[in-house]
Nucleic acid binder design. Structure first.
Lengths: 204, 204
DNA sequence: GCAAGTTTTGTCAACCTTGCCAAAATAGTG
DNA sequence: CACTATTTTGGCAAGGTTGACAAAACTTGC
């Protein structure tokens, strides 16, 4: 499939679809909104909808994807010699969170998607995040992706830590940025084997 | 949806569907096999097919799911006081691998599924694996799943290590059990911070 | 403004997936 | 065997998703 993403026109269409979808989602829930309705509201055909978004649920992850893109660049901008966890920490802390938007999307997801699909989608993003870290780790010497066990495992552990923290944050009551920072920091420190959490993997 | 899984009859249907599907998959590829063909070959309706398998691709992961079930029980059987990584290692090493079947399924998957879907499915299994480990970690004090950051992160890291090793194994040339054991062992040792891999997360 | 080339959109058809309800098969009981 | 409860199946309809091809809109160079 060829995804339109070049011209001004296509960007307008995309925006119209996003708007229409969000409005419907909020008004009548995700599952009770049909792709056809969204397309009609935006004044385009159903087929066009699927050219701009791979699925109905994809709309609920657009922000996530954008964030991933941001993170990739932030990571690339860190100094070469820095330990990978430091780079990740710095990038995460610098991220321009829009708590309100995150909360809204989270509410829509929680209320409307069947768990399987949503979890799969999030895991996908987590995997991409891990890929980004692995890329930055750079030990990947041009060989086929996933050639080095150490790189793969390290990157995925970091992704697991960050996403574990974020999911915990979303579930909790204190949805302040400070709390998010605290959780991410704790998770990453645990990986480093800091004073408090040494021996994490030796727990009973 | 109510999945049939009780009577002898339903088990026969399930087997017939599995057989029919595998035959078609091998003969004409996964993507060029329609669910309707499979159902017809097995002598049941399309609707019935979807009662036994959540999707066409689900057929390629039946073994995975069965393995997960096996692992869950093996883990539960380990002594309470054992460090979690030891338990995982022991369970993995005791698994009755059917290399031939694994290789065949892997070939089908590689050739036929669009990458997105297959990766998502595998990640799902990996997540379930992590859940199993987290469960066994037990620190989860009856509270809602994912309450403890340490447990979640630890479990996911272990899952990442094991699956990272397995995927590397599938990609490599040496598909012997010894090689699989070596890779899993290396990945898990890395987590423990063994003598060779200490400071994994401090790599540049 | 016009012709040629590129990008985006619409139409159509096929297949995937699932909820709902009723028919058929099976199991259990007396 | 007859009766009833449970389980499995089929049929149908609606909606999700995608490939193929042509029409429409836009860009560019003249």
């Amino acid at each position: 499939m060829v995804r339109p993403a070049h011209t001004v026109r296509s960007e307008r269409t995309r925006e119209a679809l996003r708007r229409a979808a969000l409005a419907r989602f909020v008004a009548q829930g995700v599952e009770d909104t049909s792709a056809e309705q969204i397309a009609a509201d935006a004044g385009v055909s159903l087929r066009t909808f699927y050219r701009h978004f791979t699925s109905k649920h994809d709309l609920l992850f657009a922000d996530y994807d954008a964030g991933l893109h941001w993170f990739r660049r932030a990571l690339a901008a860190r100094p070469k010699g820095e330990p990978i966890i430091e780079s990740v920490r710095a990038a995460i802390f610098a991220f321009p969170y829009d708590v309100q938007a995150i909360t809204q999307i989270a509410a829509l997801r929680a209320g409307a998607l069947d768990p399987g699909r949503i979890v799969g989608h999030i895991r996908q993003v987590e995997a991409d995040f891990g890929e980004a870290v692995a890329e930055r780790l750079g030990i990947r010497t041009g060989a086929a992706p996933g050639t080095s066990l150490a790189v793969t495992v390290t990157a995925r552990c970091i992704a697991a830590a960050v996403f574990g923290a974020m999911e915990l944050w979303m579930l909790g009551n204190d949805r302040s940025l400070a709390e998010l920072a605290r959780l991410c920091n704790a998770a990453l420190s645990a990986l480093e084997g800091g004073p408090d959490d040494a021996g994490m993997f030796r727990h009973d």
